[in-house]
């Protein structure tokens, strides 16, 4: 690299000599050359002036300054935690342990109370069967004739139609006539309540283990026959 002037020296050598970094072997020859070459000497002088100005600026304004303290925001690296340790740390904390224990105790107590309240008198925690409606016990089944069955139905009908009145004592003759009228095609519509009541008596099974004595106030065939006999007499 040549400098801009008619210097026979490269700028690198000038700078190296200026900063005393030229190897010893080359320094001597360079100094000898400077003594004989005015252009190189002028070049060297210009560089020296620039360097002096920077050197004096450094000496006067920077060298007397003390080095400031630089604060570094150190952060402690978090230790590597495996996923298992993370789960353990999350679960097995005192607060969470006590909370879990309390919750478990409450659940056990609730379940125990539920169990105890639903156990039956025989010690069997049977399945709850919905209790049937309180109705009159079904009269003991006996072999009835068709007329007697029709009469029962007719009588039952009359009772339901007139709920507010006391049960009507109907003579057998009247009942037979009613059956005949019915047989002729008089269709009497039953109310939904009547149908439902009939269904209840027919479908609901008696509850096992329970027997309730209810005073039977309905009219029985035996009583009716007895009445008829009394009338005949």
């Amino acid at each position: 690299m040549r400098n801009g002037k008619d210097s026979c020296l490269f700028g690198e050598e000038l700078v190296s000599y200026l900063y005393d970094e030229l190897p010893a072997a080359k320094r001597h020859s360079f100094e000898v050359h400077l003594l004989d070459c005015s252009s190189c000497t002028a070049e060297f002088a210009d560089l020296s002036v620039s360097r002096l100005g920077v050197y004096e600026w450094h000496r006067d304004e920077f060298a007397p300054l003390s080095t400031p303290h630089f604060a570094i925001p150190y952060t402690t690296p978090e230790p590597t935690v495996s996923w298992l340790d993370a789960i353990r740390a999350f679960i097995f904390t005192p607060a969470r342990l006590s909370f879990a224990g309390g919750t478990l105790a409450i659940l056990v107590a609730a379940f125990g109370a539920f169990y105890l309240t639903n156990i039956d008198s025989n010690g069997l925690a049977g399945v709850q069967v919905p209790e049937p409606e309180q109705t009159a016990p079904k009269p003991p089944e006996s072999v009835k004739t068709a007329d007697e069955v029709a009469y029962d139905e007719y009588r039952e009908e009359k009772t339901l139609v007139d709920p507010g009145k006391s049960p009507i004592t109907i003579s057998k003759t009247t009942a037979q006539k009613a059956v005949v009228v019915r047989a002729k095609g008089a269709v009497k519509k039953r109310t939904d309540g009547q149908l439902a009541a009939r269904e209840n008596r027919q479908t609901k099974a008696p509850r096992l283990g329970t027997f309730e004595e209810v005073e039977d106030k309905s009219l029985r065939l035996a009583d009716l026959v007895a009445d008829i006999d009394s009338y005949r007499k």
Binding site: E12, V15, D46, L47, S50, R51, G53
Partner: peptide
Amino acid sequence: LSTVKSRLYTALKQLRSKL
């Protein structure tokens, strides 16, 4: 290394022209 010396030479020459 040669680039360092070349840059320093050029810098000193420019400073000289300013001063």
